[in-house]
């Protein structure tokens, strides 16, 4: 287990002296050939943020855990996500109408607290709460870090039986927070219609109010 340490070998001092010189010269030479060869290879970096071939968001895999967004039209307010969150960064409040329907009062996600662990999105049974590929979340004040998804009064809680299809990921967030990714959208080339691009989706959604931030 514990090995015996071999005794140090004492080389001939003259050979050691010239050996040192030889090794210093040859290893420096060897290293310089490597660095020199890199002058003939292309750099591997990209010029984020403004000179990329496409927005970095679109280079990310679908599985990326970016900012959270919720599709309220599919949310049944089961509170599973809020319970799962280790930090309590999701706050949901509903009130009951006389006819039994429930209406969202608040559905806030505090991005200042969120650690993007993905436990809430896993807990969601209806694919309402999900991660987007949006990651540029800088805002100018701490309050803006809280994304308020209830953008207008009268948002009813969905019934688990008939859910509308999930809106493209990222579109809700893009409509809600106009600042996110604005510069990129201008610089990016025209996007193919098949991709879940936020810009056309935001335009298509008439009732979406872009003044969602507090």
């Amino acid at each position: 287990m514990v090995p015996a340490v071999p005794p140090p070998v004492r080389p001939n001092p003259v050979r050691a002296y010239f050996g040192n010189i030889r090794r210093a010269v040859s290893s420096t030479f060897e290293g310089m050939t490597v660095t020199m060869s890199w002058l003939f290879r292309r750099p591997s970096t990209i010029q984020y943020p403004d000179r990329t071939e496409k927005p970095v968001r679109e280079m990310l895999p679908e599985t990326y855990r970016g900012l959270l967004e919720v599709d309220l039209s599919r949310c049944t307010a089961c509170l599973l996500c809020a319970k799962t969150c280790p930090l309590g960064c999701i706050s949901i409040e509903t009130c009951k109408h006389p006819d039994g329907a429930r209406e969202f009062q608040t559905f806030d996600i505090d991005n200042g607290l969120c650690m993007f662990c993905g436990l809430c999105a896993e807990a969601c049974n209806f694919d309402a709460l999900a991660h987007t590929r949006e990651f540029e979340a800088s805002v100018s004040s701490a309050e803006q870090l809280t994304v308020r998804f209830v953008d207008r009064p009268g948002r009813l809680v969905a019934k688990a039986k008939d859910l509308p299809p999930r809106r493209p990921r990222g579109s809700i967030l893009a409509a809600l927070i106009p600042g996110f990714g604005r510069r990129r959208r201008r610089a990016a080339p025209p996007e193919p219609p098949a991709s879940p691009a936020p810009a056309p989706a935001a335009g298509a959604e008439g009732p979406e109010n872009p003044e969602g931030t507090a």
């Binding site: 340490v5 040192n20 210093a24 290893s27 420096t28 290293g31």
Partner: peptide, 25 residues
Amino acid sequence: EFDRLISSNEIFVRRLAGVAVISPA
């Protein structure tokens, strides 16, 4: 390539070899 660039470099070796020896015990 990394070995050629740095691991076998004489200065690098001399900076590390025999420095801060920790015995097994």
